[in-house]
Amino acid sequence: MVEPISQEHFSTLKRTVMLPNGLRLAYIEMGDPNGMPVLLLHGFTDSARSWSLAAPYLAAGFGVVAPDLRGQWCSGAVLIDEDFLAHARRESAALPSRIWHSIYYEQLAYDPSPLLQDISAATLILRGEKDTIATEEHQAQMKDAIDGAELISAPGHGHNIHWEAPEKVAHLILTFLERP
């Protein structure tokens, strides 16, 4: 039986590396360093912590790596003039909510298929059936764009299925990884 780790302990696992381009990348590494690598990517505005509940179930026999993506949480972003950022933040904060809603819906209309077609690794796409952010249509587009990708829609779960049912998500991932 796998024991979940405390959120405090998960924090102590965070490491950083300086990339050749000068950016700092933060990441969590767990499990068998000689095991098959499993890369867990978080969503927009999230961090490696989003995998903290499910990662311990995957760590037995696999080398789990969960980065903070560029510009998120502990990973560095491109340096931008502070005065510019201060003005941009004030202007953004002054936008009416209808504009932010419009931006949100524009993002939903974005088709990432051209970028996804370059993925050649075995790919599992998990979604909660009740997810209203990453809709079934959007996930199906991703599946169709990635050659051989598998899409699993879990009944009764929403957008953060790996928070809602970490053991179930880990089981689905392990089943996918253990296939020949």
Rank of each mutant, 00 (worst) to 15 (best):
V2G: 07
P4C: 00
Q7T: 04
E8K: 15
H9I: 09
F10M: 11
F10N: 08
R15S: 15
V17G: 01
L19V: 09
N21S: 14
G22Y: 06
L23T: 03
E29V: 13
G31Q: 12
N34C: 03
N34G: 10
P37V: 00
V38R: 01
L39Q: 04
H42E: 09
H42T: 13
T45D: 05
R49A: 07
R49D: 11
S50N: 12
S50P: 04
A54I: 02
A54F: 05
A60R: 12
A60S: 02
G61V: 15
F62Q: 11
G63W: 11
A66Y: 12
P67A: 14
Q72G: 04
Q72D: 15
W73H: 14
V78L: 14
I80M: 13
D81G: 11
F84S: 11
L85G: 00
A86N: 14
R89Q: 11
S92T: 12
A93R: 13
L95N: 11
P96S: 02
R98T: 10
R98I: 00
H101Y: 00
H101A: 09
I103M: 15
Y104H: 07
Y104W: 10
Y104Q: 10
A109S: 10
A109P: 15
D111L: 14
P114E: 09
D118N: 07
A122V: 01
T123N: 13
T123W: 08
L124P: 01
R127L: 08
G128T: 06
D131Q: 09
A134I: 07
T135S: 15
T135H: 15
Q139K: 03
Q141F: 11
M142V: 12
L151M: 08
I152Y: 08
S153T: 14
G158L: 05
N160V: 09
I161V: 14
W163P: 00
V169G: 02
H171S: 07
F176R: 01
L177S: 10
